[in-house]
């Protein structure tokens, strides 16, 4: 099953809407609550990064019996140094965004800690693509 969501740049009143909708679907599909938590933490952080740092984008969530596969694709500006962006505490968030309590530089770490797999591809001037995989079956 595939679920798609559009993410608007800079629109913080809608940040989290995709994650909330997808959480409801996962609940209906009877996914384990602890696994749902890990999926939505990952999705939320990726979603908010598109709102805060990118020029907009979309999320594609594929669910099968064994895993949830999420792609977060934005249309730029891209991440110049992915290793640096992954460091806890590193953030380029604007003053306005920080005032709201975002910009601690912890979002990508949260994804890494909650996902079974995280792949980040980015090209400056083109965009960023996150692939996040969470397995549905507990080992």
């Amino acid at each position: 099953m595939r679920f798609e969501y559009t993410i608007e740049a800079g629109n913080f009143t809608k940040a989290g809407d995709a994650s909330s909708s997808f959480k409801k679907i996962l609940k209906q599909l009877n996914v384990d609550p602890q696994i749902i938590k890990r999926i939505v933490v990952s999705l939320y952080e990726g979603e908010v990064n598109i709102v805060a740092h990118a020029n907009g984008g979309k999320v594609i969530c594929d669910v099968d019996t064994s895993r949830v596969h999420m792609q977060l694709i934005d249309i730029g500006p891209g991440i110049p140094d992915i290793a640096k962006a992954m460091q806890a505490g590193y953030s380029t968030a604007s003053a306005k965004v920080r005032e709201m309590g975002f910009g601690a530089g912890m979002g990508l770490q949260n994804i890494k800690n909650n996902a079974d797999e995280l792949i980040i591809k980015s090209e400056v001037g083109v965009g960023t693509q996150l692939t996040i995989i969470v397995n549905l079956n507990k080992e």
Partner: peptide
Amino acid sequence: LLSDVMGHAENGKIWITLQTHKNVIAI
């Protein structure tokens, strides 16, 4: 810090904060 709460607050916790915007409820 919203991503601190996202990463570390567990089920059933009471969240004490000065943030008053909608994203608080999303989290």
